[in-house]
Design a protein around this nucleic acid. Structure first.
Lengths: 257, 257
DNA sequence: CGTTCTGTTGACCACGTTCAATCAGTGTGG
DNA sequence: CCACACTGATTGAACGTGGTCAACAGAACG
């Protein structure tokens, strides 16, 4: 339950040089206006693995863009069961919800060390008035996330364990591809770095870790994937996709204005 | 598979007199500007029960606000299984998605006779530029729908059949309450008009109609609800909510700008 | 009226869960 | 350096929620 947020030292990198800007909310803000939007960034933080950024019920006054690292967003049931809503990756914008002032409706925890850019909620309206494009941009980000959420709902509601797991793996595979085309921070000689446990997969797919284990074992036997120690290799993408029916178009987002 | 869209006759009602404007995208457009936004409405349509508004894969050029009636939004699996994403009610805005130009990612079918206000996609950017408030408004609508979607994901992923069904019933109960405080078009002496079948409930909750039937029977036996012929009465809201853990706050939406 | 859709019930079954034990890797402190 | 604890992965056996299949009843509708 402990929080591990601490200011980043050395000082923050300028938005103009941001490595993930092409994925982020601010991607279409022209370079000569970035200084202006950057003003709204209150702080950069570092979050250590397993530490929480916020809990369901909190009412923090900031929103975050993930600069680096993996964050797990989830909800907890009365009986302790968890459901992962999303694995948030660099460029993702988190903390935004319908009831902006009220308590947060989900929990965020770091899976790796993370660097986060924080924006004060209080100045969001001001920011959007200054850059009306940004609210359209956030709308389209949300629309894409909604598409993914619908797909996960379809999965947990109607697909088998095997199909759900295959879908999740392919989704992560494609998201990492979009991010960095398998650069050093997302991959190494052992394969893609996917810092999630079988328990995490279970929480995301609505299964038990035990069943995830059995299913992964089977997939390894079938030479579909190989995975160990937080590393994943998709060995037979085509066969995996015949199971998962994952459409990479889900990850695209168009520009409205 | 047939489409049943036909222009509404007699001619469309003016937005200024719209009964569901307080729920809709345009709720904060001032009266003296409504004429301007109304210009963007290309048409009003009538859709008969069981007819489709659009199918997954279509690329229609319009978006819709539901003026009256119920619309079921769902996805279909390769094996024919369906998953309901949302029951859309009067005031709801449907058809919008991340890939605006591309094929639609879900299907929409009328559960009752519906009246729909159509807006051409092509002029959406223009509309948003003229009223930047509208993109924030749509953003907040989407954020609320996302909250609901997350809750459904939590449900299908981690809750029992009984809990999911109770949740859905309470959600519809509260949405109808917000809409009309149980006026003539949403209720009568026999209770709330909920024009969905047990099959629909099954598709929404990720269950089979048979199991929904058994669960509803049990709930009726326990005097939690009474339901028949498309009518629902919540007899013991408190007990039902101890099962469902439904928070009415999920249905609120705040205004950003 | 028949036809069709929806609701209802029973018997059986299976996918995934639960409970339990073990193992491997990793970090910690004595 | 090793004992210990802890986390995550792995496997087996028994179980149960919810699915499947089949048959029928009742309501709605043309």
């Amino acid at each position: 339950m402990k929080y591990g947020l601490r200011p980043r030292h050395p000082p923050a990198t300028p938005c103009a040089q941001c490595a993930v800007r092409k994925m982020a909310l601010f991607r279409h803000v022209p370079l000569d206006r970035l200084e202006w939007t950057q003003e709204y960034r209150s702080q950069q933080y570092v979050l250590e693995p397993k530490q929480h950024l916020y809990h369901e019920g909190d009412a923090p006054h900031e929103l975050y863009t993930i600069y680096s690292g993996w964050v797990k967003l989830y909800k907890v049931l009365e009986n302790g069961k968890k459901q992962v809503l999303r694995f948030a990756l660099p460029g993702d914008f988190i903390g935004f919800q319908s009831d902006l002032e009220g308590p947060l409706q989900h929990t965020a925890v770091a899976l790796t060390q993370c660097i986060l850019c924080a924006f004060p909620k209080a100045r969001l309206a001001e920011l959007f008035r200054g850059h009306p494009q940004l609210s359209s941009e956030l709308l389209m980000i949300h629309a894409r996330d909604m598409g993914l959420c619908h797909e996960h709902l379809l999965g947990t509601g109607a697909r088998s364990a095997r199909e759900r797991i295959a879908f999740l793996l392919l989704e992560l595979y494609h998201r990492l591809a979009l991010l960095g085309h398998f650069r050093a921070d997302t991959a190494d000689e052992k394969g893609l770095k996917v810092p999630i446990t079988q328990e995490d997969i279970a929480e995301a797919c609505g299964l038990t870790a035990i069943h995830v284990n059995r299913t992964l074992k089977q997939m390894r036997n079938e030479q579909l994937i190989s995975c160990a120690n937080g590393h994943l290799v998709v060995m037979n993408e085509q066969a995996l996709n015949r199971i998962a029916h994952f459409d990479p178009k889900l990850l695209e987002r168009s520009t409205l204005i």
